[in-house]
Design a protein around this nucleic acid. Structure first.
Lengths: 340, 340
DNA sequence: TTGTAGGCGTTATCAA
DNA sequence: TTGATAACGCCTACAA
């Protein structure tokens, strides 16, 4: 009856066929086992015949560890996050974990996903989501699952964060643009409620203020190329437009550049300087050569993995760690301008 | 002793605290249950106190279904595959599945990952890997796990495939380039042993041959921007270079365009026409406006999901299905040329 | 070295 | 409506 649904052979099946006990089978597959050559070969023969693969599921019940780590992510359209996801996956696989991928594009869908993850008994969660609110973080903490928040500075007893120094970087960019002769400044930020974008905008504003500039025109977009393009068109509709534009990520910056050059007939960097954030591969492409900040994704992932490793061996909560990775300015052509 | 390792409360814990039987707890969490209001509230109260989340792990043992679907992928640097991964993830989540993400960048690492997946008792596997060999496919079939191969036309009893019509598309492109006045043809293909790239090259060659053109200079690259750029530099080192260049994917085409324009001072499309394959977002960017083929990732994913759904309800093998999705030509600026 | 027995956290069955 | 009981597949004593 239930035979029909049965897909995998069990160790009991193998034992029966091999004419040994179930524990003999179990021992055959345990690294430091004490099994006679004879038993072992009988078992392996039967196992091959039945295509037996030991199941890890019962082990999860016994040990309370699944070796499953969930990665919650939204916006893989951004190559920076695609690369981060790939690095996490490789790193976790190398450490003997499996990755449970969860897509969430809003705080709401995140909340919906959490109980599922708890039901699968994941060992830890990585949130590479720009929208982890403190409230969601508290919700997460209730499940007593270690969490690493990537690029969103929330933390509590169970939640740690790995961020890059958005404020400092954006401030440094303000300096650079002033040095390069910028006079009127503009900024295209990400969606409201994106902490990373907020920090970048705030840092830019501070950097300008420190040099006595208070004027800053801004537009909001959605972190995508098209959004950046349209935001630039809006921002540059007025006759007295900026001559230095900071975009909260590279994709929007590339869209803005194309808007300026192709739709508005402006030269970059001669008429308008542009800078982005992330250093995605296309920022370096010959058609753009965009000045940007390298978010050191590799190092950020490594830091996150280190936190997870600690969490895996600890018995209690190991949250409240905050790692800040500096961003490195990569100056390319889009800000290379002789001061007027 | 083992208390220390115990992280989650079990239904037995809840039952004890609530003063009811374990089955009562189980029923409380079962949708169509018959529990008295009184019992239910006692249970929920105790559960809240203990932060209880029912575990899905035992259910996997009982039902032989994990609701886990593995996605094996390599090369998320290509936005086309990043988008495919995202669509798969969303689609599977909507269908009540969870996604196990596996990164594999070679046939070898794929082989290494398979037994792990079998141990986690995944219900199905999606291979979005350009390197699934028939041998690997047979290996997969041994585990009796339904497999959908994305863009690689292998199949057997347990393996189905969803591909796009690479040959037909590339042949149509040859026609177009001839119509636009192409005289000398070049092609930058992907790594050897990539079936998709092989088919595209073969189709292009066939299309040319049908119009009496046998000459075709080729170079091989790695599907990435930089690789395309370098391959173009090699291909155009000779004095008599192509005036029509087909690249096996968009990323390489964009690299080739920048090589032609910026390193070699050639005009695209006036001096050289260029076309790619995939229709990734950056192909449409203002700086390039690349002619390409839209691989309908959305539809391909939907077809794959449909196969998986069938597999989920069937009892035996459901492989050997082959779906072919047509590719649609998107002609943009890089082939817009007046015939000489 | 082997086999027997108990338990991990659920669900399903059956009797109360 | 409830509670006891037997699985599911494996691991770990413990006894033979």
């Amino acid at each position: 009856m239930t035979e029909r649904a049965k897909k995998y052979a069990s160790s009991t099946d193998v034992a029966r066929l091999a004419g040994v006990s179930q524990s003999a089978v179990s021992r055959t597959y345990k690294p430091g086992a004490k099994v006679s050559e004879e038993t072992r070969s009988k078992v392996l023969k039967a196992a091959a015949e039945l295509d037996y693969r030991p199941s890890l599921i019962p082990r999860i019940m016994l040990t309370h560890r699944s070796n499953l780590v969930a990665i919650v992510i939204g916006g893989m359209y951004n190559p920076f996050y695609a690369a981060v996801l790939e690095r996490f996956t490789v790193g976790l696989q190398d450490a003997g974990n499996q990755v449970l991928l969860v897509h969430a594009d809003s705080g709401h869908s995140l909340d919906a996903a959490i109980p599922k993850l708890a039901s699968y008994r994941v060992d830890a969660i990585v949130s590479a989501l720009a929208i982890l609110s403190p409230r969601s973080a508290d919700e997460l903490a209730r499940f007593k699952i270690p969490v690493v928040s990537f690029n969103t500075p929330v933390r509590n007893e169970w939640v740690s964060s790995v961020c890059c120094d958005n404020v400092g970087a954006a401030r440094a960019l303000a300096d650079l643009m002033l040095t390069r002769g910028g006079r009127r400044f503009g900024c295209i930020s990400g969606p409201t409620a994106s902490p990373a974008s907020d920090e970048r905008l705030a840092g830019f504003r501070t950097g300008l203020a420190m040099r006595g500039i208070e004027d800053l025109v801004t537009a909001t977009a959605d972190f995508r190329y098209e959004g950046g393009r349209e935001a630039a068109l809006r921002l540059f509709a007025a006759p007295r437009h900026p001559d230095a534009l900071f975009c909260a990520n590279d994709l929007m910056a590339l869209g803005a550049i194309d808007a300026l050059r192709r739709d508005l007939g402006l030269r970059v960097p001669e008429d308008v300087m542009v800078a982005g954030f992330d250093d995605i591969p296309s920022a370096a492409w010959g058609a753009y050569e965009l000045t940007t900040f390298l978010q050191d994704g590799r190092r950020m992932v490594d830091e996150a993995l280190a936190i997870l490793k600690t969490a895996a061996t600890a018995h209690g909560p190991v949250g409240d760690v905050a790692v800040d990775v500096p961003a490195r300015l990569i100056e390319r052509r889009t800000t290379q301008r002789e001061p007027a």
